[in-house]
């Protein structure tokens, strides 16, 4: 059985926003990846950024900066 890990999920309003975030993350060495939005999270465009839970603080700061069209941030076991 696959072991689940605690992750920080970042949702976006549009797939374009999600792709833009992936580009941003690549440029700034932010760990994580795009994944389909887990069924436990109903919000968002369908694609979200999934990062290790340790990144929650950094991702929260990015949302607060309000420059990357982040819709919401969740903590989930995936």
């Amino acid at each position: 059985m696959r072991e689940k890990t605690l992750c920080t999920i970042v949702t976006f309003l549009t797939p374009t926003d999600a792709m833009a975030f992936e580009c941003f993350a690549g440029q700034h060495d932010l760990p994580g990846r795009l994944i389909p939005v887990p069924s436990a999270v109903s919000a968002g465009c369908g694609i979200c950024w999934c990062a290790p839970h340790e990144e929650a603080g950094a991702l929260g700061a990015l949302k607060a900066a309000n420059t990357l069209a982040i819709e919401a941030i969740y903590t989930l076991l995936i």
Partner: peptide
């Protein structure tokens, strides 16, 4: 293609689940 590449990455992640 840009969207398709992103979707495929999501597809493989979903396969692992």
């Amino acid at each position: 293609d840009e969207l398709g590449e992103m979707l495929l990455k999501g597809f493989f992640f979903a396969l692992t689940q």
